[in-house]
Design a protein around this nucleic acid. Structure first.
Lengths: 142, 142
DNA sequence: GTGTATGCAAACTGTTTGCATGGAC
DNA sequence: GTCCATGCAAACAGTTTGCATACAC
């Protein structure tokens, strides 16, 4: 289920768009699965556009604010980002541990009304596993 | 349900124990709920023992390795630690958002066998809410 | 006496920010 | 022409590490 690459202007919430920001959006669309800011920077540079680290960080911040990108966890110390079509609905993410692909998923949390005496108001959840494609490879012993 | 303060030697897995490490263990026992390394360092210093930052970090690492401490999430950029009596059983944590108290909790995740086509093998969960005491205060308008 | 813990300061990582400049509209 | 985006380098926070010294056993 590839997410289409909207035009960069819309991605930034109809704000002003530079060539760097356009390249950043395009690069993000070519990356399957979740990526770090560093990976996005490299992907942008391999599109003949030089974008400084600070610029990419600022662009990612703007894209996150506009809802076009979402932080979907961490890999080591680095934040992981991915496009996500779930919009603002309550959802979580499944991350493929082999290829990094990320999908939105239903909320799998079923809390009893007063868990251990606590009133639970909020939760953070990330699921990890294998996506269908990687599962096939795995079953075939590849 | 206060967690008793074992002696420092046992906390470190029966290893050699210095006055700093003893003070760190005692300080950790006085802190209710989850704390950062910085908070633990301050608590240790207010016990008339000076312990350098690096020392506390190394001690926390050792205590985590021995299972006496557990990382229970993050607050901002800082790792949060807490004692936890759940041992090595599969469990998660409920964090009180008002007082920081942390309890182990049953796993609230119910994943369908193949969630969105993914085979889920692992998950990370943290619950947030109000502990019984803080809930009372809240209801009384305090 | 041996070996590990300590302290300090320097290194390190990911990320943010100040400031002068260039580009979008 | 006005503002915002850029780039660079410096600043930053939390954490780790190198190394000589001090202490537990």
């Amino acid at each position: 289920v590839p997410i289409p690459c909207d035009d960069a202007r819309r991605a930034f919430g109809d704000a002003r768009v530079s060539s760097q920001r356009r390249a950043i959006v395009e690069a993000a669309c070519t990356l399957r699965g979740a990526f770090t800011v560093e990976e996005l920077t490299e992907a942008t540079r391999s599109r003949d556009v030089s974008a400084g680290t600070a610029t990419v960080y600022r662009a990612v911040g703007a894209l996150e604010a506009s809802g076009w990108l979402e932080q979907v966890g961490k890999r080591g110390e680095s934040a992981l980002y991915a496009r996500c079509d779930a919009g603002s609905r309550h959802h979580h993410h499944v991350v493929c541990e082999r290829c990094g692909r990320v999908e939105a998923t239903e909320c799998p949390v079923r809390v009893s009304p007063a868990d251990g005496g606590f009133v639970v108001t909020r939760h953070e959840v990330t699921l990890y596993g294998l996506c269908p494609a990687c599962m096939q490879h795995h079953e075939q012993g590849a």
